[in-house]
Amino acid sequence: MKNDIDNLLARYFGGIASELEMQEMEDWISTSPDHQKHFDELTSLYAKLGIADEEIPRPHTKMAKEKVMAYISAHRESSLKQIVPIKRIPFYKSRIFQAASIALFFVLSFSFWKFVLSDREMILATQMNSKQKVLSDQTQINLSENSKIIYRSTFAKNNKVIQLEGEANFNVGHLGKGSLQVVASETFIDDIGTVFEVTAYPDSNYVSVKVSKGLVHFYTKSNAGLKISAGETGIYYKQSKIFKVLAQKLDSLETGSMHVDFQAIVLRDALDIISNAYKVNIKTSDKSIENRRITVNFDGEDVNIVLQIIAETLDLRLEKGSNGYLLSNKKSK
């Protein structure tokens, strides 16, 4: 305890004591006259150590007193209640007028509360086109087609939580209270000063977070997850409930190629990523195939090569049709 109070005093004199620590110090001082004396001695010592080699100028006490007393007088007067003479009005009119005013006041207040102040759900949804939105904390959201975000009308007043279904790019603003948190399916993405993109379609087997700038914390309620840095993509596989960071950036939309390292990943999850990256339809003839795991890496090959490699690795047959690709067991034919 002694060491604690000594360090607490050191923090106080250094100007870095928190409010809680100040309260602890206050409590310690008040418990004993010896503590009060100890504190007073240190205060005196602290002052003398700073100015011992100087002659101290005298303050302008009289002028200061006039200033402070004038402040007190001014604030004392403004707090006094004023007595306003009540006008004599006809009794009949007065009662009805007051009742009507009160009723109107409640109606207006309720309306104002309902439509302006109350905490209600805000939804932004897209279908064929993307949409842009700037939230009250200056966070810029680029919502892709067929996507939806939900947030509260009190966003940035107490916290900053956005639910996402689909895909959106976030350029995080920092006004208001709290840090941004995106809830995507069962995952949470906490902003630590970033620009990032989240993909979380409801019928997809994964949630991905691609970070352009800064850092995010990507996790679920039961899994501490990962921190994803700029240039990395984090994937959460819903089926296996694991997180992975892809070795290199999942850049597919612009170049139509993949640079990726799959490590013992469930095939269904891998096919989802490839399908999304290359915008192709990939099916399997047998659901049991999808549960198999694959370890393989790609470095910019086109989709035909990628799927051929997967088929070879898992001893599967690959067929290409008008509707996309089909992977099947070689024995089934």
């Binding site: 205060t43 700073g50 100015i51 101290i56 303050p59 200061a64």
Partner: peptide, 18 residues
């Protein structure tokens, strides 16, 4: 009256400007 000057001296010890 009792604490203004001592407080000013204390603040001066930190601020070095009366």
């Amino acid at each position: 009256d009792s604490v203004y000057e001592p407080l000013c001296r204390y603040a001066y010890s930190i601020l070095r400007d009366m």
